[in-house]
Design a protein around this nucleic acid. Structure first.
Length: 463
DNA sequence: ATGTTC
């Protein structure tokens, strides 16, 4: 009995040494008997776990088997599943490549790419992905529940200086920022029992309470502008109205949930192709999958509560109630039925657009945004773009866009800006009208919002 | 998008 005999049995690596050691302990047997016994151990290792000479080998064989099975479950398809792309001429190759990787995941069943698509972590921004009994934390993104809200207000001739004052007084921007002391608002979402149902959420409740009603940073904004309805809709007559539009998310709370569960998912898929590492998923039926789903849906409600507080503060300061309100989440996963099967639809920077469903697609700080109604297109998994989409990265924008050009762009459109930075310059975004035109089969336009006074976080480069 | 990681 030697190493070659063992290798002929199909064993590799450290298993060879373990088999030789076991064979040594059974040296009373003939070579034939020994080979038969080893073959039996290899075929049925679970039967040898309590037989001392073979125990170590049997354990290692079982471990190798389960690792191989795990690798098999993580193996990417050779080719991506087919998916539709809206406005392909508007989409950079990197976003296509990311979507192709997503469509090779063994859990993927369908997908689509929206015309505002650009590169993100894991799934591209503007990516829609349906999976079977799995949820991908980075298929939702860092800012879980990131969303839009529009309030149409019964006010006329609101002075620009008053808009400016209201935004200064009733919104808060910046990383880590919260309302202080007696200014801190309250909201039912903070009493949601889900906060007590996991250690992570219990820990995050304090941060959520501290930051509620704030706007954060990046592309988030609160703005006053005019909302134009060409036809009666939303319970309103056709006409031009004063409106408030906000883009906000789940702040630090959602970011920490996303970070935590992405790490859990990555640990659970050590064999996943490095290309798809950021697309690691959680089985929906597992404890981790259930915990993520619960935390994600809570973060979604929390994000909408942030908008509600922002809009309520402004309406209260004006002494009015909104005439109409529209809102939608564009970073979230939903359970849905696809071809008679239960699936999870991830929208990472995509507006839900079921037939008749209202949504908001903003342009940029100085370009119009649109209230839209979904057309229920199945090929887009009932989705549309979530905005114009970035045409250049933040660093690129800082290098390439002269401040004077941005100031001129704002001035030409009559937009007053509080905060903001070159990285959020309108020229760093795709043309919203091209993006809207590219999805005429996904949504119909209900009304147009034109920004007048915009507040954002201070960018890395002041303008 | 968040803010130095329960």
């Amino acid at each position: 009995m030697n190493g070659k005999d063992i290798i002929r049995l199909g064993l590799k690596g450290h298993l060879i040494g373990l088999a030789l050691k076991a064979a040594d302990a059974r040296k009373g047997l003939s070579k034939r008997e020994l080979l038969d016994e080893l073959s039996s151990v290899i075929a049925h290792p679970q039967d040898y776990l309590d037989q001392p000479p073979y125990r170590g080998l049997a354990e290692e064989l079982l471990k190798a088997e389960s690792q191989q099975a795990a690798a098999e479950r993580s193996r990417l398809r050779e080719l991506p599943l087919a998916y539709d792309v809206w406005g392909p001429e508007l989409i950079e190759d990197g976003a296509r490549r990311q979507m192709n990787v997503a469509m090779r995941l063994p859990v993927s069943v369908a997908g689509a790419l929206m015309p505002d698509a650009h590169v993100g972590y894991g799934l591209p921004i503007g990516g829609v992905l349906a999976t079977r009994s799995a949820v991908i934390p980075y298929g939702v993104g860092v800012d879980i529940g990131c969303s839009m809200m529009l309030s149409v207000l019964p006010v006329e001739n609101l002075e620009r200086s008053e808009m400016l004052r209201l935004l200064q007084r009733h919104t808060r921007f910046g990383a880590g920022v919260g309302w202080e002391g007696r200014e801190r608002p309250d909201h039912d979402v903070l009493d949601d029992p889900a906060w007590r149902e996991s250690k992570l959420l219990g820990y995050l409740h304090g941060k959520a309470a501290q930051q509620i009603g704030t706007s954060g940073s990046g592309n988030h904004f609160v703005e006053f502008g005019t909302f134009r309805l060409d036809e009666p809709d939303l319970g309103l007559e056709a006409g031009e109205y004063v409106a408030v539009l906000s883009h906000s998310g789940s702040r630090g709370t959602g970011a920490q949930i996303a970070g935590h569960f992405t790490r859990v998912a990555e640990r659970l898929h050590p064999h996943l192709d490095p290309e798809a590492r950021k697309l690691a998923w959680l089985d929906l039926d597992s404890d981790d999958g259930q915990a993520y789903w619960q935390a994600m849906t809570l973060a979604g409600r929390y994000a909408l509560a942030n908008h509600e507080i922002i809009h309520a503060r402004i309406a209260k300061a004006l002494g009015v109630r909104a005439l109409a309100q529209v809102s939608n989440s564009h970073n979230l996963a939903w359970k849905a039925e696809l071809n008679g099967e239960q699936v999870v639809v991830h929208r990472k920077g995509a507006t839900p657009a079921a037939a008749g469903q209202l949504g908001i697609i903003p342009g940029s700080m100085a370009d119009p945004g649109y209230v839209v109604r979904g057309l229920g297109e199945p090929r887009s998994l009932e989705s549309a773009s979530h905005g114009a989409g970035r045409a250049m990265g933040r660093k690129d924008a800082e290098r390439r866009i002269p401040k004077a050009d941005m100031r001129a762009y704002l001035e030409a459109r009559g937009v007053t800006l509080i905060g903001g930075g070159i990285d959020e310059a309108p020229m760093a975004y795709k043309r919203i009208d091209d993006v809207i035109a590219a999805q005429g089969d996904l949504v119909s336009v209900v009304g147009q919002f034109k920004p007048q006074v915009v507040r954002m976080d201070t960018g890395s480069e002041d303008i």
